[in-house]
Design a protein around this nucleic acid. Structure first.
Lengths: 206, 206
DNA sequence: GTTTGTGAAACGATTCACAGCT
DNA sequence: AGCTGTGAATCGTTTCACAAAC
């Protein structure tokens, strides 16, 4: 499949969210214009984004909401559930495990790890915090699709290397550090400090 | 000042992080090549990014680490502290308040709000959770620079409107929804569901 | 008449490549 | 000799504009 820009995929995910709202309201069809208004983009952008994957609309009419929802779910690979491991049971890690949004969208957290003896063994949302030393032995038996790294900066690269060696193909990194992984592994980073500095820049230069 | 691309600002923030490491190690100078290797980009990109703001290097030599740190801090507006209000004392909101990284980088959380009577009045990291009804009366007396929205999706737009009306010029939104604000207000969103769907897409299309 | 789908044009960001300084 | 700073070239993304479908 042709290479699709990250920005396009992100917008598709947004469109899907809006379409789900429209579906709930019982709206039958939607135009690229309406979708664009909702997402802060242009109708041409919406049509171009969709056109990479096919022709889902009817000229003069727009898009069938249920059909486009179905197609976008398919494109984004949301027809299945993903098994997720969280590494790090600190503030953000445990907040993520408790967060309902994950499971709701098909991402099931199946294990959480930490290296702090005070945390290891304690219960967390139906799971038990495991010793990160058991990462390999746990994930070999019960592989996961996605690893979420929520460790301090110093530990993040080491964990990334270990989960990569285990064959995990997707990482979501919350550690405030640049983590490098082999080409065949996809990694997305959420870097709070960086977002704040972008705001700081914007506040400063006006 | 000329419009600088968001991607450029984000890289500057990364460079700063690396330079701080170099500084701690006592490294005196660094080349664009070294900085690029550390950040997963190219030396031309590093030089171009910096060139928007001036000429900070010495040909044949590279960049003075302490000087470039100073310049980047200045460019990013990190010479001051920012007052931050967090709206929403749920899982993620309270994790943010407890997170040390904020204050370390000059972002001081001065108030946290919620609408849940069970949470209102309870202590959190030296603060007391306030009733979100008191948002206006609190922030008029003690204005903040940045509001962090950590409410459920339904409440996010309303909160954004209220803080915008209070003159807050920067928002960081964690609610899984597209929030719209007037042009003169800068907003950055961290959307977990969206990041997961980008991973899902990448896992599906390989 | 309305709205899609899409080549072509415009725009923006990255990479190249080299002159100029140390 | 080494490395920066920067115009020029390239590459990628967004916007335009219109023919085709309904």
């Amino acid at each position: 499949m042709r290479k699709i820009a990250d920005s396009t995929v992100r917008r598709l995910s947004l469109y899907l969210r809006f379409l789900e709202e429209f579906e709930q309201q019982g709206t039958a069809t939607v135009s690229s214009e309406e979708l664009a208004a909702r997402g802060g983009t242009t109708s041409a952008q919406v049509r171009k984004d969709l056109s990479f994957f096919g022709s889902f609309g009817k000229r003069g009419l727009g898009y069938s909401v249920p059909e486009l929802v179905r197609r976008l779910r398919e494109i984004l690979g949301l027809g299945r559930t993903y098994r997720v491991a969280v590494i790090g049971a600190g503030k953000i890690g445990s907040a993520l495990v408790r967060y309902r949004g994950f499971r709701q969208r098909g991402f099931e957290i199946v294990a959480i790890f930490d290296n702090d003896p005070l945390k290891i063994g304690s219960p967390l949302e139906g799971l038990v915090v495991r010793d990160v030393k058991q990462l390999e032995q746990t994930l070999i038996g019960e592989p996961v699709d996605i690893a979420v790294i929520v460790t301090p900066a110093e530990a993040a690269q080491g964990i990334a290397d270990r989960v990569a060696a285990l064959g995990v193909k997707a990482l979501l990194n919350f550690a405030p550090i640049q983590v490098s992984v082999p080409d065949d592994i996809v990694i997305k980073s959420v870097n709070l400090a960086l977002e704040l500095e972008v705001l700081s820049y914007a506040l400063t230069n006006r």
